[in-house]
Design a protein around this nucleic acid. Sequence first.
DNA 1: TTTTTACTTTAGAATTATTATAAACTAAAT
DNA 2: ATTTAGTTTATAATAATTCTAAAGTAAAAA
Lengths: 135, 135
Amino acid sequence: MKKVDIFKKLRSSGLRPTKQRVEIAKFLFEREKTFHFTVESLENQLAKKSTCKFALATIYNTIHAFKKAGHLSEVDVRGKKTYFDTNITNHHHFYDGETSELIDIDSSEVVIQKIPKAPNGKKIKNVEVFINLKN
Amino acid sequence: MKKVDIFKKLRSSGLRPTKQRVEIAKFLFEREKTFHFTVESLENQLAKKSTCKFALATIYNTIHAFKKAGHLSEVDVRGKKTYFDTNITNHHHFYDGETSELIDIDSSEVVIQKIPKAPNGKKIKNVEVFINLKN
DNA sequence: TTTTTACTTTAGAATTATTATAAACTAAAT
DNA sequence: ATTTAGTTTATAATAATTCTAAAGTAAAAA
Ligand SMILES: [Mn+2]
Ligand SMILES: [Mn+2]
Ligand SMILES: [Zn+2]
Ligand SMILES: [Zn+2]
């Protein structure tokens, strides 16, 4: 992902390309594979990788803007912290409660044969399959 | 559900049948259908229905004991509050983001044809299907 | 290029859900 | 009845997140 694309991600999220935001965007999107993170893990990794400082509020503001713009998705995991996902395709998850680790499952790996129809007046927005793991 | 059964639920959760706990157990389990709740909603409804007072800590302690004993389950919902469920069978959920309402889906209503195998050394504990609704 | 404007970063305070504490209270055992 | 172990409660503490407002910076205007 080129600098131009990073700038596009920011601009399309309504954000000026500041030092902090560019660093965050590069950390999130300049990689081969998508990944899952919490704000806490992101903060720690940014602190290591980057020279500049990041206020927590800046991290929260930036990822919320990315989420609103559709560049990040959120995953529901039992627990207190919110998990974010740079994989914004429709997909599913394994969740390893031992390690608190999320693993992606491509949509094509899950085939649902039967599903109930949505209640009166409602439509199905999407279907999420969550597979809990044990040892 | 009889008083005897309420007492059993409490005792099997390692809890003495005190006034508050009996009230909570009756509110949760003495009904035809199962339901979903947050601690906040439970607190509000107990305050209306019951004469005695409930400290928040008592409510938390009691539902945690019920959960540990398998009399309650927890549902992952996007958001900050924890949702509990008096339906402890394996089942799935519709979630209406507009109303923050959870609706049960019986296991038999969902048939999964294909699912990936668990990663190395891990086994599948359970599969949760979460259907987001829109208008 | 300077000036102006609007947006951004930041440290710290506030908020919210939840958990911990410890003193006063109560069920159960003796 | 007395003792013991468990319970309730108000309150404090914690943890994740959001808010605030002052100081800083990017972009627009002059
Ligand atoms: Mn939880
Ligand atoms: Mn969540
Ligand atoms: Zn994912
Ligand atoms: Zn349910």
